[in-house]
Amino acid sequence: MVRALIVVSCGLATGFIFDFLNVPAGWLLGALLFGVFYGLSRSDVKFDGLPFKLALTLVGANIGILMERELFGIISTYFIPLFISLILTFTGSFFLGWLLYKWAPILDKRTALFCCIPGGASEIISISGDYGADNRIVAAFHTARITFFVLLIPLVAGIWSHADEFSLPEESYLFTFEHFTLFSIVIAVATFLNNKWKIPAGALLYAIILGFLLGEFVFDVREVPAYVGGIGQGLIGVMVGVRFDRKTFLRLKQIGLISARIISLFLILGFLLAYIFYSLSEASYVISLLSIVPAGAAEMSATAFALGLAPTLVASLQIVRVISVFLALPLLIKIIERSDK
């Protein structure tokens, strides 16, 4: 427990330094890098389960408070480009799973498929064993993919963004009792709902909805101190980073350069999907990238929040993507079963 608190504190401190140095998504990247460094050197700290869910609810509460009612009308205008992007995501992921199976003979078809399903890494890992896949390889692959994407995408988004795209709330340093009450209620209720009714990205989704409802109709909260969102992003960063430990590295080493090739193709797929979404919608390319790239709903939402790039829109589209992947999962499994015959 003490060591976990020290790791979190050091990760947040690193995130603060990165943010102070004006590194894009500094809280997230700094904490993530520290987490990766610690995970590779020592594998004695894990943040799965409740700690990670609490970090998600903190980020979700921040995003929900930023939401305005006009957003729901805006989201509906993205239905067609989102639908087309989802179809292409399924097709591309299935093709990458097939390539992984062909290039890595040590993997069976189901393990290769689950390694390439881009929808809620923790949820995919947790259910992969139930479908007969090797969840150790699945966990290692998704951990490497998410870590690589979360390291790269914020840098790309920060460099490509234009000043007029940024929409951060006004700076405020005072964390009031009303803030404390609002966040406490959202975190507690969202955690309860996530335990009661588990859905993909549930902790984040529940927190966003509650943050919006309470911030819009109950509490008179117009802005939140920037460091509160930074702390949430830092928590997610360090908790994701420590997952990339020696065991993860050694399991990926079994596949060798093949895993690096597939992850690179995943990145190319993400950029292509973002371009298609950008071409079919009114969103900028950077916002399209954060909304569509299969790099984790929570992580991309935190990145969008850190950069002030329409975080509510990004979170909404990412959650729709994750839920859609899970709804399509039985169909994907049936395709695999038929190919086995």
Rank of each mutant, 00 (worst) to 15 (best):
46 K>S: 15
249 F>S: 12
181 T>V: 14
44 D>C: 09
124 I>P: 03
19 D>H: 00
339 S>D: 15
273 L>I: 01
309 L>W: 00
295 A>H: 12
251 R>S: 12
39 G>Q: 02
295 A>S: 14
173 Y>R: 12
290 L>M: 09
334 K>S: 13
135 N>S: 15
118 P>D: 05
78 Y>N: 10
278 Y>P: 02
341 K>L: 13
279 S>I: 03
243 R>D: 10
8 V>T: 11
127 I>Y: 05
249 F>Q: 10
121 A>R: 09
38 Y>G: 06
197 W>H: 04
26 G>T: 01
70 E>G: 15
328 A>E: 03
42 R>D: 09
117 I>K: 05
284 S>Q: 02
325 V>W: 07
179 H>E: 14
72 F>H: 12
332 L>D: 08
83 F>C: 10
283 A>G: 07
114 F>N: 07
32 L>P: 00
170 E>K: 13
140 A>M: 14
301 S>T: 11
197 W>R: 04
244 F>E: 04
309 L>D: 01
13 A>F: 14
259 S>C: 12
228 V>I: 11
74 I>C: 01
330 P>I: 09
302 A>D: 08
293 V>I: 15
53 K>G: 13
106 I>N: 09
25 A>W: 05
6 I>F: 04
291 S>L: 07
85 S>V: 01
188 A>F: 15
340 D>M: 07
150 V>F: 00
232 G>W: 02
21 L>N: 13
24 P>F: 00
189 V>T: 04
224 V>N: 03
233 Q>W: 03
294 P>W: 13
131 Y>Q: 06
15 G>D: 05
76 S>I: 07
163 A>S: 15
222 R>E: 11
40 L>D: 03
223 E>Q: 12
177 F>W: 11
5 L>I: 13
163 A>Y: 11
150 V>K: 01
186 V>M: 08
19 D>V: 00
37 F>S: 14
302 A>W: 08
225 P>I: 00
26 G>N: 06
159 I>C: 07
119 G>K: 08
203 A>M: 03
319 I>C: 00
129 G>M: 07
199 I>C: 01
26 G>K: 00
134 D>P: 08
281 S>Y: 04
166 F>N: 01
256 G>W: 08
33 L>A: 05
198 K>C: 06
143 T>E: 06
197 W>L: 13
261 R>N: 08
247 K>P: 02
200 P>W: 01
272 L>D: 05
234 G>Q: 06
168 L>T: 04
338 R>F: 14
326 F>L: 11
147 T>C: 12
116 C>W: 01
272 L>M: 11
168 L>W: 02
186 V>R: 03
107 L>K: 09
5 L>N: 11
114 F>H: 08
97 G>D: 06
120 G>L: 12
205 L>R: 11
191 T>V: 03
63 I>S: 05
39 G>P: 01
142 H>I: 11
215 G>P: 05
267 L>M: 14
215 G>E: 08
300 M>F: 15
218 V>A: 13
34 F>E: 06
82 L>A: 11
320 V>H: 00
190 A>W: 07
173 Y>S: 10
60 G>L: 02
340 D>A: 10
340 D>P: 02
264 S>D: 06
340 D>C: 04
